[in-house]
Design a protein around this nucleic acid. Structure first.
Length: 288
DNA sequence: AGCCAGGACTAAT
DNA sequence: ATTAGTCATGGC
């Protein structure tokens, strides 16, 4: 294994790297110097924004990195997706502010585990928890000298082996038994994350929600961010507020069922994509 | 100091 | 089928 990373410039149009990596869909892209650094699978990687697209570097033997191109969704053509969004004021404002935001394609286990850690946590804290888990239980990967990160995300096996107290020591609090339950289910085969990919969305959602600590919202995050179900529409506190303020400004009381029905009918075939634009936009407006 | 955070579970109505 | 209380931790 070489000590130096492969470096390439990828011409990509319509890519807002900052929005993509800082919009709260993933928690292991760390700002370092002029770009962001992460470990994707078992590979250290780094990306920065350049005028013609992305400047990308990674550790690995191969001269190309299809796994990284896939993860970053650099091959996705954004325009046709944006064209399906409803032509209303809230969506126009969100797209105007963060056009080029892309949904990453994440590893299902890492995504599932990360969002189990996410409940009633601020994004900065989720990043900290994920960093602790990786440093303590993830395997060391080859890195160049300038690297900040040195560990892969821990496997289900290592999380299961770690035990509840060790997870609590990573600041998981009451989520520790939830993450442990998920890891055990994957290890013993009660949850087959590969099989989930072949299920229809409703069936996949039910399978994920069998995990103690995974409800509708977290299941939808995993479906959207790692299984490519771009009509999955996670409704968290921010999205709930945004929907109510922007689409039902003078309603006295909106039930969760009403909001869900609206989210499934109003935003089109890429509703989950639209949801991420709404989410990131309201957080930017709020100064986050 | 008190409120809130990319929620979900349980028990009570 | 909805609702209140609870859980652990830390940013602002």
């Amino acid at each position: 294994m070489s000590l130096r990373p492969v470096v390439q410039a990828w011409p990509v149009a319509d890519y807002d790297l900052a929005s993509t990596l800082e919009c709260g869909q993933a928690f292991r892209w760390i700002w370092a110097g002029e770009g962001w650094e992460s470990v994707v699978g078992d590979h250290w990687a780094r990306v920065e924004s350049i005028p013609e697209g992305l400047r990308v570097s990674w550790m690995g033997d191969a001269p190309e990195a299809p796994w990284l191109r896939h993860h970053l969704a650099a091959d996705e053509v954004l325009e046709p997706i944006l064209a399906t969004f409803p032509d209303d004021a809230p969506m126009r404002a969100a797209v105007a502010r963060c056009r080029g935001l892309r949904l990453l394609r994440q590893d299902p286990w890492e995504c599932l585990a990360s969002f189990i850690c996410s409940s009633t946590k601020q994004i900065v804290q989720i990043r900290q928890i994920v960093a602790l888990l990786s440093e303590r239980w993830g395997r060391v990967v080859p890195t160049p000298p300038e690297a900040v990160l040195h560990h892969a995300f821990p496997t289900p096996e290592s999380v299961a082996r770690a035990g509840e107290q060790a997870l609590r020591d990573c600041k998981l609090g009451f989520r520790a038994p939830y993450l442990l339950d998920a890891a055990r289910r994957v290890v013993d085969g009660r949850l087959d994350l590969t099989a989930v990919a072949r299920m229809d969305t409703a069936e996949a959602r039910r399978a994920l929600m069998e995990i103690h600590g995974v409800g509708r919202k977290i299941a939808d995050c995993v479906l959207l961010f790692s299984y490519g179900r771009q009509d999955a529409f996670p409704i968290d506190v921010w999205v709930r507020r945004a929907l109510i303020q922007k689409y039902f400004p003078k309603a006295r009381r909106i039930t969760a069922a009403r909001l869900e029905a609206f989210s499934q009918t109003h935003f089109g075939p890429y509703s989950g994509y639209a949801q991420q634009y709404l989410f990131h936009h309201v957080r930017l407006e709020a100064g986050r």
